[in-house]
Design a protein around this nucleic acid. Structure first.
Length: 104
DNA sequence: ACTCTGACGGAAT
DNA sequence: GATTCCGCCAGAG
């Protein structure tokens, strides 16, 4: 098996894994870098399948608004925010991240 | 094959 | 800034 085949999911995970600490990337950006234009939703789906304790820094992925995407009923928003704050990522008064500074 | 849904994005109101 | 609507891609029933 080749390490990197045409499986979009594998490429997406590699891109996310490559996001440096203290930085964030948008779903759309990750999709683009992974060679899957307009595959933002796909990125979200792949990350949603990740098991807990995964080495993938999924918390560094936010939506195009620089905000933490709501998962529905999961109180994970606070957790993700905590992880980012610990890495030095700053949130504005409106809970938004300045993508010009912390984005890739 | 069809319909519904979703960790999205962007334009319109 | 908050809502609403539409476009896009994939998986599930």
């Amino acid at each position: 098996m080749k390490p990197d085949r045409n499986d979009p999911a594998a490429r997406i995970l590699e891109i996310v894994a490559a996001i440096p600490e203290g930085r964030v990337a948008t779903y759309g950006r990750v999709a683009g870098l992974a060679g899957v234009p307009r595959g933002a939703r796909r990125v979200g789906r792949v990350l949603a399948e990740l098991p807990e304790g995964s080495d993938i820094p999924w918390h560094r992925v936010v939506n195009a608004c620089g905000r933490i995407s709501p998962r529905g009923d999961a109180p994970i928003e606070g957790f993700q925010r905590h992880l980012l704050l610990e890495e030095g990522v700053e949130f504005s008064d409106t809970d938004r991240i300045d993508l010009d500074r912390f984005g890739i």
